[in-house]
């Protein structure tokens, strides 16, 4: 089931193309990583989804309906550049933002109360934002994003400015929201959080989508038949495999990275390796999202 469908969206500013013919679908209940280097067009895409700006062509659908200003209320958006009214009190501010999203006053008040409790901010209810630490203000902003229980939550670099404790707290909240039925789009260039959180990713580079799909599928697609072997003895490139590098481990063994040239699968490679060295460990090297990201982005820039 798809929640969001981006259909052939293009957008150009006066002097450059920000998005060209981008299409993707975001499954319901997923945590979707929107990746890309700075200036790739992530923020433009998000702003088109939230209807802050209008695309030149193409359409965005939420639950099958074209996104209208009314439908935007079902989206919660945490922009990368955080900001709240500095002089306004925490409670008033949340109430204001929630009511702009269409919540009734009593409903908003009770949800604010429970969220402040959940994130340990109850005693700050009556304080002005400017009196809060940066981390606390970020939490308030997170609450503002999810208070109206949106179907789609868009988080742009949600962990910047959080210490590890609070980052974990927010991470848990993101999982909880997903379990409660929300779909999360998660825009970032911090790959370790993508590995940890996302089940789907899309990679945008230079205004074009160059990759998307399930994280697992993408990783499998990018396996290039390299294996990490820990062994006794010396390895050298042969007709069956290519030695990409080796280094000594602490306990006197050697850890080598080899590329399979046999085309016969891991067992076949092991068979060949056994002939040359004593194997202590053998594992396939699965590429990290970071490696895929870098190779894709670099590859793109070479073309």
């Amino acid at each position: 089931m798809e929640l969001l469908r981006i259909d052939d969206i293009s957008k150009s500013y006066s002097n450059h193309q920000a998005l060209s013919n981008v299409s993707m679908t975001i499954p319901k209940g997923s945590i979707f990583g929107l990746l890309g280097p700075n200036g790739a067009g992530k923020t433009t895409l998000i702003r088109i989804i939230t209807r802050i700006i209008e695309q030149d062509s193409g359409t965005a659908f939420l639950n099958g309906d074209e996104i209208t200003p009314e439908l935007v209320r079902k989206i919660g958006y945490l922009p990368e550049e955080r900001g709240l009214y500095k002089k306004m009190k925490v409670g008033e501010q949340l109430l204001y933002l929630a009511r702009l999203k269409g919540l009734s006053r009593p409903e908003a008040v009770s949800r604010i109360k429970s969220w402040l409790k959940r994130l340990d901010l109850t005693e700050w209810h009556g304080k002005a934002i400017e009196d809060l630490s940066k981390g606390m203000a970020q939490k308030v902003q997170f609450i503002a994003t999810v208070l109206h229980e949106p179907d789609l939550i868009i988080l742009d670099e949600p962990f910047s400015g959080f210490d590890p404790v609070n980052a974990n707290l927010i991470k848990d909240e993101i999982f909880k929201l997903r379990d409660d039925g929300a779909t999360v789009i998660f825009s970032t260039h911090r790959m370790e959080s993508v590995e940890e959180l996302c089940d789907h990713i899309a990679l945008i580079n230079k205004s074009e989508k160059i990759l998307d799909g399930k994280k697992l599928d993408i990783k499998n697609d990018h396996k290039d038949g390299t294996f990490v072997v820990i062994h006794e003895g010396t390895l050298a490139t042969s007709e069956h495999y290519e030695l990409l590098g080796s280094e000594r481990t602490e306990i006197g063994l050697t850890e080598s990275v080899v590329k399979d040239k046999t085309d016969g699968g891991p067992n076949n490679l092991v068979k060949e390796l056994i002939k040359d060295v004593e194997i202590h460990s053998f594992i396939e090297k699965v590429p990290t999202i970071n490696e895929i990201f870098i190779s894709k982005v670099k590859g793109g820039s070479h073309e």
Binding site: P69, V72, P79, E81, G83, L84, K86, L100
Partner: peptide, 17 residues
């Protein structure tokens, strides 16, 4: 200017025109 520099603008603009 205050709304713009404090960056609340993007939050609000995602809710209202």
């Amino acid at each position: 200017v205050e709304e713009k520099t404090s960056r609340i603008i993007e939050v609000v603009i995602a809710s209202v025109k």
